[in-house]
Design a protein around this nucleic acid. Sequence first.
DNA 1: GTTCTGATGTCAGCAACTGACATGGATGCC
DNA 2: GGCATCCATGTCAGTTGCTGACATCAGAAC
Lengths: 176, 176
Amino acid sequence: MLSAMELYVERGFEQTTAAEIAERAGVTERTFFRYFADKREVLFGGASELQRIVLEAIEAAPTDESPVDAVFAGMFAGAERIGGNREWSCQRAALLAANPSLMERELLKLSALGEAAAGALRLRGVAALPARLAAHTGVSVFSIGFDTWVGDDPPGDFAECIRVALAELRELTAAP
Amino acid sequence: MLSAMELYVERGFEQTTAAEIAERAGVTERTFFRYFADKREVLFGGASELQRIVLEAIEAAPTDESPVDAVFAGMFAGAERIGGNREWSCQRAALLAANPSLMERELLKLSALGEAAAGALRLRGVAALPARLAAHTGVSVFSIGFDTWVGDDPPGDFAECIRVALAELRELTAAP
DNA sequence: GTTCTGATGTCAGCAACTGACATGGATGCC
DNA sequence: GGCATCCATGTCAGTTGCTGACATCAGAAC
């Protein structure tokens, strides 16, 4: 709901009651809770779509591609979906940063995305441990790239931020 | 509180009220909420100590050690703290797996640990982006290693699980 | 036109959490 | 000993998130 986002930005998340959101949306509080599991979930409507896009891209990756490459095919597809509206992303990021309970939910969604991506890798024949490692590493880089992108001076668009982060990570983990 | 953990295991997290925990502990519900910010926080008493141990180990690492090595010095120190009581870790992991709201809190704590570790790296002169990447990668491997360790057939103790995961990750991210 | 179904409203209620104030017991000082 | 002080806890009332049960009502299906 856009009404909820507006109110959260206007007066803060904790200071906004479910009844107020419902009222602005023109429905009852009870109806609000029929659409959203809880007050936080309003901000995560796009999560399932993002996950779908990521998974489809992983599945669509060439079978001979490495697990990490397949995962990042998914991440770049996800970045393309999000990368259009930087303004909105910044606003949302500020809200999350200011409200630990919202950040909790975000982290849960990201973790679920990681597990789902790991599942997609497993379908490609990757063993359990490398699947989880590659998938969660991908999500981690995605997330840190996002932070860079909504930060003060990003080196480019969202995808570019991810590329930069991935290159840096490869350098960091290069065997000694 | 041990009373809380008992009750959560006995009858489940959601089915346990704060009043019941307080009663078993011999205090008032109000007093319970003076000690713990919320119902979930009871299970995360050790988080601050873990963070302290990890940070101290990172700070204590030789100055010429790479960021990743320093982070893993911290992770192994943390693993040593936790690795003693596998039984308890398994019970706790089962609780988290069964309760998304508890998992949320766990992820928030792990994320905070990652940010704190990144801060410790920055004090060693590491730039912001590589610091966050190394730190969160370390936490991610720590967490996946933990899952392996409390799983069905771990390849050894907690530290060994982390070593295995780290080696696997290095192989995965090796430049193509 | 009736029936059925799905979305919404209404209402009562539980449980998580909080603020304000009371109380009591330990501690320290004279 | 007596007194002041402080800190932990109890008491109580209240708000808010969230849920179950049931009523209502509009539109689709027949």
